[in-house]
């Protein structure tokens, strides 16, 4: 295995006033050129994870433990200015709703050029490069579109502009937080194809956050399943779909209606995701788990290797007597 481009170790975030944990002991690594899908329901902490890596946590939430290592360098140990510089260069992020991230009174081309200028690209070259980036994100008639304002573009085109802005920084790691959730299904398909293409061409490492397992199947190489702020399962995308080992992953897959095959009654997960501050003491999924035993309620299970390229945080993963104690980095 090559050295990961991004490593998260034991990341824990806490509400500043109540000391309740939001993310707890989250560890994973992102390999160069890999797409790691992060999937979870609301309250899983997936967006919190993105903000933590970007160093953009709101004031009321603190990182209380853990390391974020980008390309061998620990960002948590560096001063905020340094992190900010990384954000402009090695780390970029795209969001669910591009309209709120774009400047409404600035031409979209200028917003791309701004990023290029900050990298020291001269004005004339930045203009050329902006058109070039618009072509890469497949915006038709780029020479005209650079002069448009965000409100003049469709939702799909705005997301393409956001991607162009992100690429302008020439990042090593791109974090995409539900980038297709607000889009119609035909536009979503176009944006996913585009992200896949750009990721391959540029060798980008992509951390792709979504609630939609279908989108995960489309784009991810490996998958991190988050539940109530903890990692439930980490495995290759095929393992997740073919042989999920965590009861939560399995139930989540079974609860999705399918577009073919028989239409049986849907599997449900009773109850709701626990909210911050009311987390169960042991396994956070235990109260909803149909395989729960007394031992599950004592302490949170560690993420243990349960097979080749698969790890689950469960005392009784499917098909295994006991996970190996070794935690997966």
């Amino acid at each position: 295995m090559t050295r990961p481009i991004l490593e998260i170790k034991g990341l824990t975030t806490t509400l500043a006033n109540s000391k309740a944990t939001v993310l707890e002991d989250v560890s994973f690594s992102l390999q160069p050129g890999e797409v790691l899908g992060v999937v979870g329901e609301s309250g899983s902490g997936k967006s919190m994870l993105a903000l933590s890596v970007m160093g953009l946590l709101p004031k009321v939430i603190r990182r209380t433990a853990g390391y974020i290592i980008l390309n061998g360098e620990d960002l948590t140990g560096s001063p905020p200015e340094h992190w900010r510089e990384k954000r402009g260069r090695d780390l970029a992020m795209i969001f669910q709703e591009p309209m709120t991230a774009l400047n409404p009174v600035m031409r979209v081309g200028d917003q791309v050029a701004e990023v290029l200028r900050r990298r020291g690209v001269p004005a004339e070259k930045a203009r050329q490069e902006t058109i070039n980036l618009f072509m890469q994100v497949e915006i038709p008639s780029p020479e005209q579109r650079v002069r448009a304002y965000p409100h003049e573009l469709s939702g799909g085109m705005r997301q393409r502009v956001m991607i162009a802005i992100a690429l302008a920084a020439d990042p090593k790691v791109l974090i995409a937080d539900e980038p297709t959730t607000a889009l119609d299904v035909t536009v979503q398909a176009q944006i996913l194809d585009l992200l896949r293409k750009l990721q391959r061409e540029r060798g980008l490492s992509l951390l792709f956050i979504t609630h939609d397992l279908g989108v995960i199947a489309e784009i991810a190489d490996r998958v991190l399943v988050l539940y109530a702020g903890r990692v439930a399962e980490l495995a290759s995308v095929r393992k997740i779909f073919d042989s999920p080992q965590h009861p939560y992953t399995r139930a989540l897959l079974a609860s999705i209606p399918q577009t073919k095959g028989p239409r049986g009654r849907l599997v449900t997960i009773e109850g709701a995701v626990p909210s911050v501050g009311t987390m169960p003491k042991g396994c956070r999924y235990a109260p909803r788990c149909t395989f729960r035993r007394d031992i599950c309620e004592q302490e949170p299970p560690r993420l243990g290797i349960v097979g080749p390229s698969q790890a689950a945080a469960c005392l009784q993963p499917f098909g295994f007597e006991q996970p190996q104690e070794e935690a997966l980095a």
Binding site: V185, T186, A189, D193, G214, E218, F241
Partner: peptide
């Protein structure tokens, strides 16, 4: 076009997109 744009239900599923 609408149906072919639905994300696939398994990573190995082949999909012909009617863009």
């Amino acid at each position: 076009a609408l149906l072919s744009a639905i994300p696939r239900s398994h990573p190995d599923e082949l999909r012909h997109r009617h863009q």
